[in-house]
Write a protein that binds this DNA or RNA. Structure first.
Lengths: 201, 201
DNA sequence: GGTAGAGCGTAACAAATGTTACAACAACGA
DNA sequence: TCGTTGTTGTAACATTTGTTACGCTCTACC
């Protein structure tokens, strides 16, 4: 399908290689909005390509706690970092925000594609590396803690906090806690507030 | 050098390929115990292979806070997840615990090696994937929080806490805090203590 | 006009963790 | 033996965040 070519990873792939890839065992699957795409703990045996729609990856904690880890938007790979891991179960729960369509591509076929197409190899390595960097950043945010620091990071990355509740979920805190900290930072002049929400400086 | 063959990643590599690789620009470097190997923010332009000694990767926080992220022990790759990233600076500080020796291997040469040697490609993908899983786990520990849960995880991974101070640093909390929690868990029968330290069950 | 719901701010209290300080204990060398 | 050093337990207090609850302001809709 030409649908896959929207993915930067295989945009530079030759048509023959792509045709060969799709001749290997693979399938396309639909998910309705709100449906679970991946449960935490599910094995990850094929390359998953989100070609349509938006989804969310959440990490679930023991006591109902949950943290929004990543927002997925087509075209994008799903859980690429776990495809070739020794323990290849996904640690997050992925749910469809809008209606979604996803391709499952045979892992061994994709592995062979990487060997024949340097651009795919380079692209996949870059995706994996960026994922690693992303996760390091997230971990640093949580480990080095201090909600205020995380708020600053969030504002630098997102530009503004438009809905406090959503930001609170992403930051892994409760809404009243974030609301309180934002009020304090507003008093101290660390953030400003206009009709669009909270902003930096 | 035969030294590199200790690394599982290239153990199955043919001798010609390996000779070719070492003919490309690369160098071996020594680090004395206690010395800084990588500063946080340093760019990562070559594949780094720790072939001798032990090192530690720490994440530094704003207010002097620091978390021990990973213990590196030869033979092992250093910061493999950042070699092919768009923003390829390392987010951690790496210091030599014992005297260390490290190879720097040209990135493009290694990229070519992966294309000619499937075992190297597979191995590197696995290393990267495992790193991703490791980071996800770490992040989950911190995000989903509750020090007690992290202590249980730690005991499951390490077997025992022999020195409270070291464990506290790895868990990202202060020593008195960990000491207090351990005491409480001891009272509740969640852990036991013998002359070797704290244990599970 | 009225009503319901969503999103937000805020207050009072609880729980978790940090901070600082001190004492006990073991290991070790002078 | 004595003092030193490192490790640990513990206490008192401060700070941060969670919990729960309430009121306010919008907007959509009847």
């Amino acid at each position: 399908m030409e649908e896959l070519k929207k993915l930067k990873l295989i945009a530079n792939c030759s048509d023959e290689s792509l045709e060969w890839l799709l001749a290997q065992p693979c399938r396309r699957q639909q998910y309705a909005a709100g449906k679970l795409i991946l449960r935490a703990g599910d094995p990850c045996r094929s390359l998953m390509v989100l070609v349509e729609g938006e989804a969310e990856a959440k990490m679930m904690g023991e006591e109902g706690r949950e943290v929004l880890v990543d927002k997925l938007k087509a075209p994008m790979l799903l859980a690429p970092a776990f495809l070739f891991a020794a323990e290849n179960s996904v640690p997050v729960e992925v749910t469809a925000v809008t209606d979604c369509a996803m391709w499952h591509i045979n892992r061994e076929a994709f592995f062979r594609l990487m060997q024949t197409e340097p651009s795919v190899l380079k692209g996949f390595l870059e995706v994996l590396s960026n994922k690693g960097r992303f996760l390091s950043g997230k971990m640093r945010s949580f480990a080095v803690k201090g909600l205020r620091n995380r708020v600053v990071e969030y504002l630098e990355a997102h530009g503004a906090i438009t809905t406090v509740a959503a930001a609170a979920q992403e930051l892994g805190v409760t809404r009243p806690s974030l609301s309180r900290v934002l009020s304090e930072m507003l008093d101290e002049g660390l953030v400003v507030k206009d009709e669009k929400g909270y902003r930096k400086v």
